[in-house]
Nucleic acid binder design. Structure first.
Lengths: 105, 105
DNA sequence: CATCTTCGTAGGCCATGACTTACCGTAAGT
DNA sequence: ACTTACGGTAAGTCATGGCCTACGAAGATG
């Protein structure tokens, strides 16, 4: 019930850019929004969506708020894709096998 | 340049449902659209998006067209998430370490 | 205390995209 | 050849959501 929100959140290019900027570590909002082609409030809204999806953690620090990538949130999505990948592979193998059988006739 | 399209494609609930129906193997359009709360043309459009994103393969078989999950497409997304997961973990560990140092002072 | 920074929220605008019905091509069955 | 099944495409409607400006709350700084 969680990976859906995560994948929806990551569908937006601006949000993926934000995530990319947080790869090296936590940052306050102003630093994230610096040199970005959207306004700071827009970034705030994106940060909201990302943390609601469980992809970010927020740590208030005095005047500012530090955002960081939440490993758990990423892992949810990772696990979903792993099962999908697994099913796709076995289905693919089974189809190839059946096709080989058909051709052998 | 490929995982972006894949994640955008998977952001839609209807498309995720389609993917789920294909986990067990290839299906023609009519079978995918059966008992679905959207029309068949809508499903056709979704199938277009999914195959454009590299997530599905199409195999014309006489009158029908068989759609199947493309393992390669899923793997692209998987690899992106793996690097993200990796970066998130190291950033997390480094933050914890620095915090421990700060507290020790 | 006054001011300045930092950041979230509200309201409104506008583009994107998901859906429908209608239609057409193509393959299969009679 | 006629008809039926399958499925992609076109045109139009409508809701979602991403963006902006304006504003307000809360902490830092002089």
């Amino acid at each position: 019930m969680a990976y859906e929100d995560a994948i929806t959140a990551l569908a937006d290019p601006t949000r993926r850019l934000i995530i990319d900027r947080l790869r090296r570590g936590a940052l306050p909002v102003a630093a994230i929004a610096r040199d970005m082609d959207v306004s700071r409030p827009a970034v705030s809204q994106h940060l909201r969506v990302l943390s609601d999806a469980g992809l970010l953690t927020v740590t208030p620090s005095g005047n500012r708020r530090l955002y960081a990538i939440a490993p758990d949130g990423v892992d949810n999505l990772r696990r979903y894709l792993d099962t999908l990948w697994d099913d796709a592979l076995t289905a693919f193998a089974r189809a190839a096998e059946e096709k080989a059988k058909g051709n052998a006739k």
